[in-house]
């Protein structure tokens, strides 16, 4: 069991590294020199490569897919997902409010409007989904 976990971790590390290198190489081949975008391209490719390899592994081992599906219903994982989502929502909202203040101070009106709109959409979506779930439960 331990060995299997170690092998899996090493395999995932190698896949991540390959995905990152692929992203960086493709970005360089396109002739762009922005270093931040190069890193982002690497990260994007890590996500894409990992998703494709996961898909391949699930097709190769259908039982793994079934187990994964079953685990989606695991009540503890559902609670963890809920808490993580709520934390992410609060953090995103906080960041947006900070950005809104910064743009107000810098007198960047257009961006301020856009951010206020985003904040409103976030809050409305949250309240609507709370209302929906409270009626359903």
């Amino acid at each position: 069991m331990e060995d299997r976990l170690k092998k899996k971790k090493v395999k995932h590390f190698i896949y991540n590294l390959l995905g990152y290198l692929l992203g960086v190489i493709i970005f360089d081949l396109l002739g762009n020199e922005n270093s931040t975008l190069r890193v982002l391209s690497g990260i994007l490719f890590v996500i894409v490569v990992r998703a494709l390899l996961d898909l391949y592994e699930y097709r190769k081992h259908p039982k793994m897919w079934e187990k994964e599906k079953q685990l989606e219903k695991d009540e503890r994982l559902i609670i963890i997902r809920d808490k993580a989502a709520y934390f992410t929502y609060n953090m995103t909202l906080t960041i947006l409010v900070i950005l809104w203040f910064v743009n107000i101070i810098k007198q960047n009106d257009e961006l301020s409007y856009l951010i206020s709109g985003l904040i409103a959409v976030f809050i409305i979506l949250m309240e609507l989904s709370k209302l929906y779930w409270s009626r359903k439960m």
Binding site: Q70, L71, K73, D74, E75, R76, L77
Partner: peptide, 17 residues
């Protein structure tokens, strides 16, 4: 039909079912 971590958390008293 739960994860092994759920069983472990239950046994350690970190999680109430």
């Amino acid at each position: 039909g739960v994860s092994r971590q759920t069983i472990s958390s239950l046994e350690n008293g970190r999680y109430n079912p």
